[in-house]
């Protein structure tokens, strides 16, 4: 059995095992740290930075930073919440996130995170309004990267679980986007049963299953009844949308 030790999150002492990340230890202790790119079952990559915390005064991503014995972690402070709000706002502004007409609305983790962080109106950043095509070439699956937040969950699921490498990042900087292993989705060997296509894998409405939009009535969607938190979202015990 791994060595046990203790550290603090917002003054609450929790136990951790050697080798656990701050987030893993927090999840085990029932302390929620917001996240978008991390999901149970996939290797963490620390790219969205929404799980930003301070560990002994240093800003780190909780999903990739190991817990340290005796350390003090700041999670729900105003400073940290401010960082998270800005990060999530920028995600909204660099994509085309039209919640009112998106079938992921109500089960979208980006939307739920926005509500959790109190983002209810347009912010100081300009909308980039990128022009991105919709790839509906596959008979069962649509890739609408207008809604992509580059979390990489589909990439990791396809590579590490499905063993197919259907998705990958292409481009650099502001032009970075998720591409497919072919000219279009129909050229790949992706299937509906793949973990990468599971609606619990894509946190937004970028990867959608054809002909099933708006099947869940308003009031019965994942985040209609409970806000995103531990067990209601991508952390431990995340249910199907």
């Amino acid at each position: 059995m791994s060595k046990q030790f203790k550290f603090e999150i917002d003054g609450i002492e929790i136990e951790a095992r050697h080798g656990q990340s701050i987030m893993q230890a927090a999840d085990d202790a029932g302390v929620y740290i917001p996240r978008l790119c991390d999901v149970e079952g996939l290797e963490p990559q620390g790219s969205c930075r929404v799980c930003v915390v301070k560990q002994n005064g240093r800003v780190v991503s909780a999903c990739t930073q190991p817990a340290i014995e005796g350390s003090k972690v700041e999670n729900e402070t105003e400073e940290i919440l401010g960082y998270r709000r800005d990060l999530v706002r920028m995600l909204y502004h660099e994509g085309n996130h039209l919640c009112p007409i998106c079938e992921a609305s109500g089960r979208c983790e980006l939307q739920a995170m926005g509500y959790r962080l109190g983002i209810t109106q347009a912010t100081k950043y300009p909308y980039l309004q990128p022009v991105r095509p919709v790839d509906a070439s596959h008979p069962d699956i649509v890739l609408d990267t207008n809604r992509c937040i580059l979390c990489g969950r589909c990439i990791r699921a396809s590579r590490d679980i499905d063993k197919k490498h259907v998705f990958e990042y292409v481009g650099r900087g502001i032009h970075k986007r998720v591409g497919v292993n072919g000219n279009k989705l129909a050229d790949t060997n992706v299937e509906l049963k793949d973990r990468a296509i599971d609606l619990a894998t894509c946190p937004v409405g970028c990867i959608i299953q054809k002909g099933r939009g708006f099947f869940a009535p308003i009031g019965e969607r994942q985040f209609d009844k409970k806000p995103i938190t531990l067990g209601v979202g991508p952390g431990k015990g995340r249910g199907k949308p």
Binding site: P100, I101, E103, V134, A136, V142, I208, K210, G211, R212, G213, F214
Partner: peptide
């Protein structure tokens, strides 16, 4: 144009 048919009833009501 270009949107998916099942989105249309939700989009055009706007």
């Amino acid at each position: 144009l270009g949107r998916l048919y099942w989105e249309v009833p939700v989009i055009v009501q706007r």
